[in-house]
Design a protein around this nucleic acid. Sequence first.
DNA 1: CTGAAAGCGCTTACAG
DNA 2: CTGAAAGCGCTTACAG
Lengths: 324, 324
Amino acid sequence: MRSPTIKEVAARSGVGIGTVSRVLNDSPQISESTRQKVMKAIEELHYVPNVAGKRLSQSRSNVIAVVVPVINHPFFAKLVEEIELAADQKGYSLLVASSQHRIEKEQEILHRLAQKQADGAIFVTHYEHQENDFKNLAIVTIDRHLGNDIPIVSSNNYEATKQGVRYLIEKGCHKIAFLGTRATQSSEVTLREKAYREVMEENGLESFVINKDVEHGQEKVLVDELLANRDHIDGIFVSGCILANTLFNRLKALHIKVPEELQIVSYDGDFSISKLENITTLEQPIKEMAEKCVELLIKIMENKNDYEKVNILDCRFVKGDTTK
Amino acid sequence: MRSPTIKEVAARSGVGIGTVSRVLNDSPQISESTRQKVMKAIEELHYVPNVAGKRLSQSRSNVIAVVVPVINHPFFAKLVEEIELAADQKGYSLLVASSQHRIEKEQEILHRLAQKQADGAIFVTHYEHQENDFKNLAIVTIDRHLGNDIPIVSSNNYEATKQGVRYLIEKGCHKIAFLGTRATQSSEVTLREKAYREVMEENGLESFVINKDVEHGQEKVLVDELLANRDHIDGIFVSGCILANTLFNRLKALHIKVPEELQIVSYDGDFSISKLENITTLEQPIKEMAEKCVELLIKIMENKNDYEKVNILDCRFVKGDTTK
DNA sequence: CTGAAAGCGCTTACAG
DNA sequence: CTGAAAGCGCTTACAG
């Protein structure tokens, strides 16, 4: 059972297809009477315009894509959700792809974009790409610098981390560790360690850093490494939500009292699945970041140039139960 | 800077556009020499075929859609991820939409599908739809019955729950509660409560059920209600991962020893963000469910009829630390 | 093995 | 205000 086309609607209502098209697109110069005729035919036929025709004739798809390393991760799931909402708001559908930490899959996805499956894309990548790969594509990235012409949206990694470490110091911590899963060179995320070291130095405190790239699911290895060398650590700045959660639960299992013996401040926000206890956190403004990405993408696609290349949004400090 | 089209490739290589198309599609009857010529032009021009043309001429998009209530939820995030992988494997891109528990958004999404944005869709809905809404759409659902013509993929809610409750009994529980967030009438998920009640009755035990619809994030309300009426409960069958996690953490906070004083078996699988402790669980085979959905969808789209309307996949029992 | 042409379902100047 | 026609970028019988 084929779906009816604009041609059949035109025939049934006794007008040309151009007229039907104008009715569909709410063109102003259409007489009320023909509009009625056309609408009637549309309803009778249960006609729904086929986007394939529209896309070809307009050479745009009204689709944007988001590429993340994985979807099944609290931060990325939330990010994808917020991007979907923002895109929907603006009339765009969302194509989602995950690179699974494999550069080949990322390249495969870039190829799909080059085929014009989407008008633009939001990229969260761990890999280096030649700027060339993005030629002719409307692209925005989160956290990663992909090249001078590609706008980036990020949270204020540097300042927010400083704020967090200083907060630990204010709350009486003297021996503060930094715990993170190291990101690639060109990521804004690397500023977190830098900020931590600077605050420590400022205060004449010694740095103690565990910041290594581990596979998703292996965060506990880092936590155990930290705790094995715990010594007299009384504060930890944690660079990500999964790590923070893992740490927190491990401490509970070890009967180490938080925040009495040890205080924790985490980046990212608190994504504990059960909303029972709260980690003190510098929460990334994910919703705002998603909206900014979509907004930027639309400007690029419309060839407007009134946007910033670097967009840093502030984290929100949320006091939880892991600090005094 | 416009992208080159097939016409320019044809011109540059001195052949017709049909020939270029055949080269692109690895058509067998193409002489090696023309293939070479065409490939050369393609490379020189950095030509990438535009899918819009292909889609229109083939009247298919090679896109499938997935519609979930929310993305930022451990079960759905994992599901979307697995569907993306399975779809990718089969050469399909994935459009993702979330209904946000709003029926209007679901209908809006159905409309997009009617516009042929995708060739088919995987639907996880909480609402009733007229079967009519899905006319001409290739649709598969997870857990929800949407009509006789729409295939459903589900886990073995009934049998797996029985297994779980019986396991608690075997392990010495006498007063076992059921804790769940009630789903709609037509969902397979409702079988969990039914199975629980039957096993309890079989064993001459009294049922104690808390099964209510709550907003995501409010699971702790149910947990508290259960614990307030705890009495001598020594076992709990929990219907979902978030609820199970919330319960587990609450029990720890209350210093109720698990599994010594209270044993827990949960449906869904264990999605605790930090992989430190494990809940005994009947784990849904999400990956297999995702693959089955994609497989079914492809069969429907190809008008093959050699598939089952009802596809129940078995959960995997995973012993964790919450049972003896 | 290959080219010319029709067709996929729309949009949009152009003319009237 | 509206119709006829060209065009968007492909694919695919049809002929040769």
